[in-house]
Design a protein around this nucleic acid. Structure first.
Lengths: 166, 166
DNA sequence: AGATACCCGAGTAATCCGGTCAACTTTACG
DNA sequence: CGTAAAGTTGACCGGATTACTCGGGTATCT
């Protein structure tokens, strides 16, 4: 799962679509204005979202896009997977055990990245579009149960100064 | 937290260092040979790791690098943070609420990415180098508690075909 | 002295990524 | 039917970032 800003923009746009869901199609132009994204870029994004079955399009005047499923049934992970195609593996990456050389056995860190990918996917699939627009995200989702093994310095509590890929 | 391949290489190298921890310094050349990484690149990586207090260096003949703390006390998150400096915020990113425009209120997806960053950090700080070399990663760590809200198609169970940043 | 190995900063080649553009198709409406 | 609104496609671009190299230091051991 690649977490580029493209994916983030797609989630923003989908959240916007969900909030303005009134049964009538929503124009990309409207979303572009509200979210301050370029129309051309949104077209590119929604092309993928439509092919991924997340939205339906209505052509012609009065057309636009509609959520294919309800916002409560649309998971964030679906959105991310729809816009960011998996990726080519560099060295050791989940999905490409052949990249794990250093003889035949899987490289030591393979399981680590695989499990991390799993964690991220589990988190993103536990959150729906509806959760996002209702601001029901923080703390609502499950938390890692295992505590840090040894505290070396400073406190862990909140590390919101994190990010994933520029 | 940026998860570049630089960070992955650093974790690989640290895992290698941990496995060959015999009290005597390990040369970068040895690690380079075993992990098939270039010496120059490793030098760059270990410069940061040393400045981050994760390893100690010994110069001169017979020199090399040593783990500053035991492998059980070295968290993966420490390694990643040492090697990948935080980042500059693009639009909405944790740590930069000012990027969340669309008037004054934080953008809808802000909390989502913040919480995701937190989840990743929590996971990576729950795993030590020792866990990695002992292959004690899979399933050992905590799992997200909240289940996916609605299953649309296919099963979720294992999504190891994920990755983070090329 | 000389060999070994860390140290460091500048440099580079490639890739990626956000974003644009132009042309085409489909549909509504008068 | 004609025109305009909207989606659809795909090629393209330029800047930023990454991954990685090179060349020259500096400490330290024998």
């Amino acid at each position: 799962m690649k977490l580029s800003s493209k994916a983030r923009y797609a989630v923003m746009a989908m959240a916007d679509l969900a909030t303005h869901d009134s049964g009538r199609p929503v124009t990309l132009q409207d979303i572009a204005d509200r979210q301050e994204l370029s129309l051309s870029y949104l077209e590119q994004l929604f092309g993928r979202l439509r092919r991924g079955g997340l939205v339906n399009s209505v052509r012609g005047p009065g057309g636009g896009y509609l959520l294919a499923r309800s916002s409560g049934e649309t998971r964030i992970s679906d959105i991310v997977l729809a816009v960011d195609e998996p990726l080519r593996a560099t060295r050791c990456m989940p999905g490409s055990p052949q990249g794990c050389r250093t003889d035949k056995k899987r490289c030591l860190t393979h399981d680590l990245w695989a499990e991390l990918g799993n964690q991220i996917y589990l988190f993103l699939s536990s959150v729906t579009l509806d959760d996002v627009v209702a601001r029901r995200v923080l703390g609502s989702s499950g938390l890692i149960s295992a505590p840090p093994p040894a505290e070396s310095a400073g406190s862990v509590e909140d590390r919101s100064d994190l990010a994933l890929r520029h």
